[in-house]
Structure formats: C-alpha cells, structure tokens
C-alpha cells in the first residue's frame, strides 16, 4: 500500500499538536510500547502501527545537570532527563525552582512553555509547583 505522503509526518504532527496545546506521545498498536521522540516506525518492534495518545504529563527526574555560564552570558540553568509515566525518556528543564534544587527522583508535571519562538514541553515540581 502506498504511504500517505500528503499528511505531515510524525515529527511535524508532534509539533503541530504542541502548538495546539497538546503534548502527545506515540503508542504502538502492534507491541504496546509507548514511543518518544515521534517516529515513522516503532523502534521496539518495527511496525508502522504508531498512534497518538495525549501524555499524562507526569514524570520523574532521571538525571540532572546545571549549565554554568560566564556572568555576561546569563544565569545558570538546568537540563534534565525526565522519565515519563508512560515509559519514554525525554530531555527538558525543570522550572520554578533554582536549577541546583532539581533532584534525581523528583516528581514533576509537564507544562507547555510558549514564551519562546516555538512551544516546548518543560516541567515543574509536582503538587504545588504549578
């Protein structure tokens, strides 16, 4: 069967959904795994049976670093890897607390940050941080 090349691919579809305020993950109807970043084929089983599901937004800090800059370049900021409740891991940052205060194991909740040119998924400490 010819591929549907008229519709946006998964990468564009992900960012289109994000622009509409929805943080979407892929779910493989063949093997049941959840997938991020968005792909054309399931990296677990190879099937082209990936469908979109909205992420719960719940996650846990898996690893964290604080990027230090020269003062004239701006304040330090954090870069984290988040384990999403659905399984996949993603890079992000934790906002609303000091970058050094981010801890591995911290429960966090996703929000879509629209302050820049393009919307991005960022996280805040779960419960009260939002």
């Amino acid at each position: 069967m010819p591929a549907d090349t008229a519709a946006p691919g998964p990468e564009q579809a992900y960012f289109d959904a994000l622009a509409d305020g929805r943080f979407m993950l892929q779910h493989c109807n063949a093997c049941g795994e959840n997938v991020f970043y968005p792909r054309a084929l399931c990296p677990h089983c190879g099937a082209d049976a990936l469908v979109w599901r909205e992420a719960s937004g719940r996650g846990t800090v898996h690893a964290t670093s604080v990027v230090r800059r020269r003062p004239e370049q701006g304040p330090p900021y954090n870069v984290v890897l988040i384990d999403l409740e659905e399984g996949p891991r993603m890079m992000s940052r934790v906002e609303t607390i000091a970058p050094e205060a981010v801890r591995i194991g911290m429960a966090v909740t996703a929000v879509i940050d629209r302050s820049g040119d393009d919307p991005v998924v960022v996280f805040r400490p779960a419960g009260g941080g939002a």
């Binding site: 690893a63 990027v67 984290v80």
Partner: peptide, 15 residues
Amino acid sequence: YGPRQPITSYALAAS
C-alpha cells in the same frame, strides 16, 4: 533545552 554539547550529555550520565 540548551544542553552544552557534548559536555552536558556526559554530565547527565555522571549525575
């Protein structure tokens, strides 16, 4: 997210 590559990637593994 502005990782300073490649340093931040290895820093995350170190953490």
